[in-house]
Computed example of a mutant assay.
Amino acid sequence: MSEEDRARLYSWLCEQTDEPLAEYLMSCLAPAPLLDLVTKDFLRSELEKYPTKDEVAARFAAFGDRMEAKFDQLAVQRDADRREFAAQREADRAELAVQREADRAEFAAQREADRAEVKNQCRWGLWCRS
């Protein structure tokens, strides 16, 4: 409301009621400088800078679709990693089984060599069981 409008309203209120009541009513109306008022055209031009509700909804939908695609890619990658790790685990188990058998054979050969040596020592009387 411009100052001119406020002055006209105040004088009308004074005619209709008494001056204290007119002053009270005018104090209830917040004064706004004319420079702070916004025109509809200015408001429209400012609002055009921001996306509409439909545009925001479309962006969120596109974002959701991208996130879903990323989650699908992660699931595929996770499954591939699981298969790869399972294959590696089986390969490691097979390698360890071969190593275990080699160790058993080596320890059995060492045990037989130790028994033969003990037997040989008993034959010469160096060491025997009682």
Rank of each mutant, 00 (worst) to 15 (best):
A97F: 12
Y50P: 01
Y24S: 11
P33V: 04
R129I: 07
Q121G: 00
L9F: 00
S11P: 00
A58G: 07
A7M: 08
Y10S: 08
S27Q: 11
E106M: 08
V76Y: 11
D81E: 15
A109T: 03
Q88K: 14
A62F: 05
E101A: 09
R59M: 08
Q99E: 10
L21C: 08
V118Q: 01
D54V: 02
R89C: 10
R78D: 15
A22N: 01
T39D: 10
T17C: 12
A22L: 00
A105C: 06
P51A: 06
T52K: 03
D18A: 01
A91I: 03
R8G: 03
R8M: 08
A86F: 10
W124N: 03
L37R: 13
Q121K: 04
S45C: 13
T52C: 05
P51V: 01
R93Y: 05
E23C: 05
A75D: 07
L34Y: 12
Q77K: 14
M1K: 14
T17Y: 07
K70M: 10
K53T: 04
R44K: 13
E55W: 03
E112T: 08
D36H: 14
S130K: 15
L25H: 01
Q110T: 07
A108G: 03
A30S: 15
E68R: 07
A75T: 04
E3K: 11
L74M: 15
L25K: 00
A97H: 14
L9I: 00
K70I: 08
E95T: 09
M67L: 10
C128S: 05
A102C: 11
A116W: 10
V118T: 02
V38R: 12
R104H: 06
A22S: 01
E106K: 12
G64C: 11
P20L: 02
A113V: 07
W127D: 03
R111Y: 02
A61W: 03
V38Q: 09
E90D: 13
S130D: 14
E101V: 04
K70Q: 15
R115M: 01
Q110D: 06
R78F: 12
Q121L: 05
A22R: 00
L21A: 09
G125L: 00
T52F: 02
W124E: 02
A108Q: 07
A108E: 07
V76P: 01
A69G: 05
D5S: 15
S2K: 03
E55D: 08
D103P: 01
R44N: 15
A109N: 05
D114P: 00
R82T: 08
L43K: 05
L21D: 04
K53D: 05
K119D: 13
W12N: 10
C28L: 14
Y24W: 11
Q73E: 14
A102S: 12
S27I: 04
L25F: 01
D103Y: 04
